[in-house]
Amino acid sequence: MADDRELWERICRGDTTAFAALYRTLGPKLEVFLRQVLGNRQAAEDVMQETFTQIWRRPNAFEPNRGTLRAYLFGAGRKRAAEWWRQQGGVNIPVRSEPSESKTETASLIGDAFAHLPEEQRTLIWLREVEGHSYAELAEILGIPVGTVRSRLFAAREELRRVWHAVPEVKKGDT
């Protein structure tokens, strides 16, 4: 992908080819992230589409000096997801883990544990561990200070670790 600033300038000028490239490259990643946050495949796709539509309509909201385009996109998606949660009444529904033959037991247990985390912690861990966002990018996406990113990541990891070790009991309670 071209340099963020150059790409963004093209998008601001209405270059549909540039925006379509951004959509093709980051759209699927954003959708997978939103699936983890929302726990609903259809909602994840809808929110991803809405996020890109919003950005296409109002491209000036991105400031290249303040962070990367990728962080901006995930931040916008995350805000849309928060709005979706609010419309659902703000209830934290555990994400349903898709059954898969190829998952190892550990992976499956961690996946289950992850699904039981609160939305905010799922978001943070996914963006860090899977998407590889830096602390600065996470601060930009979540609108919190960098120091808070560090302490919240720690809290999220600890919670995931705790739930991971307790997953058999959780599963028992679910059945």
């Binding site: 959509y23 093709r24 759209g27 699927p28 990643k29 959708e31 997978v32 699936r35 991803m48 898709e98 898969s100 190829s102 998952k103 190892t104 550990t106 992976a107 961690i110 996946g111 992850f114 861990i125 996914w126 561990e129 899977v130």
Partner: peptide
């Protein structure tokens, strides 16, 4: 393991 789980997530084209 989370990255592994992520790799198993179906990711089609937008």
């Amino acid at each position: 393991e989370l990255r592994r789980v992520a790799s198993l997530e179906p990711m089609g084209e937008a």
